[in-house]
Amino acid sequence: MNLIDRYVAEVGKHLPLLKGREDIEKELKSTLEDMLEDRTQNTGRTRDEAMEIDLLKEYGSPQKVAQTYNPHPYLIGPKMFPFYLFVLKIVLTVVVSVMLVLAGVQAVTDTPFMGADFVKIIGQGLGSALSAAIAAFGNVTLVFVILERVLSDKEIGGFDDEKDWDPASLATEPDPDSVSRSELIFEIVFTFVALAILNVYPQWLGMFFFTGDEQVFIPMFTEKFFQFVPWINVVLIVEILLDIYLLRNAIWNRLTRLGKVVIEAASLTLTVLVVRTPGVIGFSAESFTNGPFQPEQAQVFVTIATYMFPVVMAIVIIIQSIELVKAVYRLFKMSGKTA
């Protein structure tokens, strides 16, 4: 195998997997032979390895030559890239949200609120969320890389919504009435997880302790709290339905703004009712003493829980009040504008 043959074979190794690969190699060899013949005639020199080396240096590295035949120099081409980013944002939001919620639930239910185990579970949760995000990123990217290579140019062109874009859409989607899709997806996922925990996995809302072979569960809430669950369900389901409707319509109108005000007001009312109902918290000195704790330790946990509950609920009420005020303000602003 002479130098030219080795060069052609090396170019072949780097050629993309396309039809006519052998043709390209054959044509390249033929061209190089023609060029060498030209040089011998023009210079009067006889063909030797030095002449071949000079020619190949001028022609370029095998990788560079092979690259010129690559019809897809991109991992994901510019036509498909915006859609890839859109899908990636949704998948990453959902995956990371779910992993963080699971980690949060595990941290609250499997361990006391403080201590090394709590920190360890939070750390593991963050690690899992990061791993899941990296895996999701890799998988989504891989799918799009494959699509880029197996779909025809016409099919890839279908991902480019430039043709369907209408300047009139600018007028129908004025800020601040356009919806944020990522926020809605985030809200739907969290609301759905909350619904699932309240109705399917209420046993997660508490603390687990292992004393020898025996498992002790201390529920976070009493039966009194679960009397509110049907009402909480109604609010959460209506919120999911509103979010799905907004996701499809991509814009707020007066009806959806009003719906949002009603949902926020109902959420706030429910929270206040829960807080004002005595005995909704399941953590008590008795329940902790039945667990693997000494009476002194149990008292510490009960004190923490007793103080934490009002603080957490106060924060929730403040946030819900702000959301309600924002919803009412946006409704009035919209009414004023269209009146």
Binding site: G20, I24, E27, L28, S30, T31, D34, M35, Y59, G60, K64, V65, T68, Y69, P71
Partner: peptide, 28 residues
């Protein structure tokens, strides 16, 4: 014309084209 003869023909007419541009273009 074969690739190299076309390359020379274009050069003789005053248009220098790189091989790395011409051959993939012909295939396209």
């Amino acid at each position: 014309e074969y690739g190299y003869s076309l390359l020379k023909k274009l050069a003789d007419l005053g248009l220098e084209v790189d091989q790395g541009t011409l051959y993939p273009l012909l295939r396209r």
